[in-house]
Simulated assay, not measured.
Amino acid sequence: MKTNFKVFFLSVFGVTITSVFEILPWWFFCIPLLLLGMLITFLGWKVPTFIIGFLAGFSVWVIGNLYFSHDGNPVLDQIGAIISVNSKMIIFFSGLVGGLLTGLSLHTGHKIFGHENTSELD
């Protein structure tokens, strides 16, 4: 259980720290999480990587969008007006996309080196 919280907070830190550098593309947060997934494998931690990664990414994207929408930034309202959707739905769907990308990145990093020795030749 402790390792789940460690991985969650490391994932949140990885997503948040990459968003500080505005020169990086928006999807760059996947790279540190891929590396974190590899580190989880090397350390031998048994954690549900996709679920923890999804929850970390979803929470960061939703909280970040809520902060910027309440900070007086009208971008979400403008996007909602263009596609005829409420800004709260845009916040939810951006959290869903961010969570899926984060969960898949962490899980992929875990599975790159997390292969079991299942070959019939051994």
Rank of each mutant, 00 (worst) to 15 (best):
K2A: 04
K2I: 11
K2G: 06
K6P: 05
V7N: 01
V7Y: 02
V7H: 00
F9T: 01
L10Y: 09
L10V: 04
G14V: 03
V15R: 03
T18I: 04
T18A: 06
F21A: 11
E22S: 09
I23D: 13
W26K: 15
F28S: 13
F29P: 01
L34P: 10
L34Y: 13
L36R: 07
L36E: 05
L39E: 15
L39D: 07
I40T: 11
I40P: 10
L43Y: 07
G44L: 10
G44C: 10
K46Q: 06
V47R: 02
P48Q: 06
F50P: 04
F50H: 05
I51M: 09
F54P: 01
F54S: 04
L55M: 07
F58C: 00
V62Q: 04
V62F: 02
I63A: 09
G64C: 08
Y67Q: 09
Y67D: 08
F68H: 15
D71K: 11
D71M: 14
G72S: 09
G72W: 10
P74F: 11
L76M: 05
L76V: 06
D77H: 12
I79Q: 14
G80M: 05
A81S: 15
I82E: 15
I83D: 08
V85Y: 15
K88T: 15
M89W: 13
M89Y: 11
M89R: 15
M89I: 12
M89G: 12
I90M: 08
I91P: 01
F92H: 03
S94Y: 12
S94M: 09
V97A: 06
V97H: 14
G98P: 08
G98E: 03
G98W: 00
L100W: 08
L101W: 11
L104A: 15
S105V: 05
H115C: 09
E116W: 15
T118S: 05
E120L: 13
D122G: 07
